[in-house]
Every structure is written in structure tokens, then in C-alpha cells.
Computed example of a mutant assay.
Amino acid sequence: MQRICVIGGSRYFGRLLVERLHAAGHQVTVINRGSTRPPAGVEHLVVDRGDEPALVAALGSRTFDVTVDQVCYTPVQAAIAVRAFAGRTRRYVMTSTIEVYDPAATGPTALPAHTPVPEEHVDPRAWPVAPDLPWDDEAYLEAHYAEGKRQAEAVFTRDGGFAFASVRSAHVLGGGAQEFTGRLAYYSERIGKGEEIAVHAEALPTVFIHYEELADLLLWAATASDFTGPVNACSDGRLDVRELAAVVAAQSGGTPVHRTVAAGGTASPFSFDRHYAMSNTRAKELGFAFSHVDDWLPGAVGETAAVTA
């Protein structure tokens, strides 16, 4: 049994992670602002993680083997966590995102064209941090989501007094009504109604992960592995937007109707005009076994179609 703290953990794969940690016999503490209670038997600390004095007071004398941070979006939040958890946790795992590799910010890779990007392409040890930017402005944060995650990783890597790992998640799908982003429902509904899907002329593939697989990987990262640094989390197999639409159509009926947008135009979710795929080789070498996207995507589409019908 390990003592594990989960910051966030109120919905989707975060809640599933909490359930699986508890079911595995670990002593789990959840920290959130109280909108959703954790399962019975899980300790619940209601506090805003951005309020440092309140967070420190809520933690009290508690110590943890591992802390899993599901809701760190800025370098300011990361710096607060570094101070609050100093001496309180042996290891810290942050949920990050594929968005950290957005070529619009990181620039082109030195890899051959369309090669899945490895973790070292964005090295948090060298990424600049600017805590004085307006990170508390919701509109600014939404527009700079990827940069906030990059800078948060950098703060933990350089300033944390504990072992630190980040899990850079691919686009998460599955779960029917649980999929709060609504992106899979978007395709199911539009294809079912024969409505247009806006795509780039040369849409490039990206990578995905099922929400249950991401919960499994976070469970593994927290309890079964001591790796540090970033690790990419994505199922095997890549899909572009047209291939994704074809899977949705095969499961839910209808025929995809594509409308090509001009360069720089707004397209549907998961239509990318720049390379957006990660390599999952490091996680495999560390011992995690991924599914293939073909193994679970049809079922996820079916779950979503049943909810949106």
C-alpha cells in the first residue's frame, strides 16, 4: 500500500484513476475545490490549489509516497505546488499534453518528415518560464494552454525537491457521456445528420488514447514505475481526420461530408495542417503495453452514438 495524493481527480480519467488506486488498496487523498466528492473511503481535502496558505494548512502534517497532479496548467500553480509539497512527497507525477509539441510554438523538428515526436523535442530543463504573464486570466490561459503546460513542467523539473515525471497525453476519447470535451459526439452527430465536416486540404494524422488506458498509464506511473522526466502516452496507430470520420460513419451510420477550408482557416477538431503525432517508444521501453487505436475506437464511437442518439 502507498499513500497517494491526487490533485483534481473529479471527472473522466482522473476520477477513474482515483477509483482504481482505491480499489488496488492504496491510501488515497483527493484535493479539489469540492464540486465532486471522491468515492467512499477516499480522503477528501476541499481547497483551491492556487491558494498557497490554504493548501499548506489543508495538507497539515500529511506526507505521500506519490502525488498525481491532474489540474496543473500554469507555472504559477506549479511553483505553489513545489513549495507546498516540499518534504511532503517522494515523487510527483503531472498530467501534461500532446499540445506541448505544437509546431506553432516549438518550431520544426530535425526528424524526417512526419516522424512521431519523441519526448526530448520539448526539454523542460531548458524551456523558459515567465510567471509574470496573466496566467490568472481565463481567456489568456485558454489561448496559451500548451505554453502553460510547458512552463509548468519546467518549474517542476528545475525547482521541485522530489522526483518528477510528466505524462504527456494524446487526444483522449471514449466513455460516451463521460467524454466532457464532446469532440467524438461532434463527429457522431454531424455525420449522422449529413452535416459538413471542415477539414484541411492535406490534413495530417495525430494520435489518440482511450480514457481508460490513460487512467491505467497514470496508475502505472504512480505505483509501478519510478521513471522521471516526460513520457508520451498514446495508443499505437495514427489517424487523420478523414480516417477518424470513416470509423465514426462505419459505427454510427451516415456518410461523412467533407468541406475543405482555406489555409489558415478554422477546421473541425482533430484536423491538423501541421504534424501532430507523438512516439510512445519510451513508455514501452519502461514497461507499459499500449493498445492499438483500432482495438477501442469503434467501441468508443458506439458508446458515444448511444448517448447522442
Rank of each mutant, 00 (worst) to 15 (best):
A126P: 03
A130W: 10
G160T: 10
A146P: 08
P128F: 06
V167P: 02
E142G: 14
A163P: 05
H144W: 06
A130D: 13
K149T: 07
P134Q: 02
D136C: 03
R158S: 08
D137P: 04
W135N: 06
G148E: 07
D132T: 09
A130G: 05
A146K: 07
A139M: 04
S169R: 01
A165W: 05
S166C: 00
P134M: 07
G161H: 12
H144R: 09
W135R: 05
R158N: 14
A130V: 05
A154N: 01
A146I: 08
F164W: 13
A143H: 15
V122E: 00
P128R: 04
V129F: 04
T157P: 04
A130C: 08
F162G: 01
D159R: 13
A143T: 06
Y140P: 06
G160L: 14
A163E: 15
F164Y: 14
L133Q: 12
A152G: 08
T157E: 15
D136P: 01
H144K: 05
E120G: 10
D132Y: 09
L133C: 00
E120D: 14
F162W: 10
A165Y: 09
Y145R: 07
P134N: 09
R150I: 04
T157R: 14
A126N: 10
E153S: 05
W135L: 02
A139H: 12
L141F: 04
A126L: 10
T157W: 15
W127E: 13
R158I: 04
